[in-house]
Amino acid sequence: MTSKEKITAIKTSRKLHDQVEGSYLALMAAKGSKNWEEKQRYLLADMALHLYQTAMNPGQLKLDELRNNLHAIATISDQFIPNANLKESTSELFEREL
């Protein structure tokens, strides 16, 4: 994929991001409410799009952004897969220098 193609893909993902983030912000849900899981799914999709943008950005991969993306995704996913200890596993992402 050329840099130009990557930039086009990122622009498309920004449109998707705006839609997903808008849905997340519009859905009023408190933790434990019937809409909470749906709201968290929007948040997970939002973070996945950030990861996509980080990975597709032309040039050198920004490791601090990658680390933050992975931390967010693992933290949100922890509630869906609680036995995997995903949130706890993210502590190692920040223990070592990049």
Rank of each mutant, 00 (worst) to 15 (best):
S13C: 07
I81E: 13
I73H: 04
Q53W: 03
A29Q: 15
L93F: 01
M28P: 01
E97Q: 12
A72P: 05
D46K: 15
A30I: 09
E65D: 07
Q53M: 12
L43Y: 04
H17A: 14
E21G: 10
L27K: 14
A29G: 09
H17P: 14
F80A: 10
A74S: 15
S33F: 07
K4W: 04
L25G: 02
L70F: 00
L63I: 03
L63G: 05
E92Y: 00
E92D: 02
L61F: 01
S23T: 03
P58F: 05
E65C: 02
K34C: 08
F80R: 13
Y24V: 01
T90C: 08
S91Q: 04
G32M: 08
P82K: 13
G22V: 00
L25P: 00
S3H: 09
L16N: 08
P58R: 10
L51R: 03
N35L: 12
H50K: 15
A48V: 12
I76F: 00
M28Q: 11
L49P: 09
H17S: 11
S23D: 08
A48T: 07
L61R: 12
E38L: 13
E21L: 10
S23F: 03
I73C: 01
V20Y: 11
L70K: 06
N83M: 00
E95M: 01
H17E: 13
A84E: 13
S89T: 07
N35K: 14
V20A: 10
E38G: 06
L93C: 02
K15D: 05
N57L: 10
A45H: 11
T75Q: 09
Y52P: 10
E37Y: 15
L43F: 08
T8Y: 04
S33P: 13
M56K: 13
K87L: 10
M28T: 06
Q60H: 07
E21H: 15
E65K: 04
I76M: 02
V20K: 09
L49Q: 15
K39A: 09
A29M: 14
Y24L: 09
A29N: 14
H50C: 06
N68T: 05
S77T: 00
P58H: 11
S91M: 09
S33K: 14
E5N: 10
A48L: 08
L93T: 00
W36G: 13
M28I: 04
M47Y: 09
F80L: 11
K62I: 07
S3G: 05
L70Q: 05
H17I: 13
H17N: 15
E5P: 03
M47S: 08
R96T: 11
H17Q: 14
I76V: 01
A48N: 06
N57S: 14
A84P: 07
I73P: 05
Q53Y: 04
T90G: 10
S33A: 12
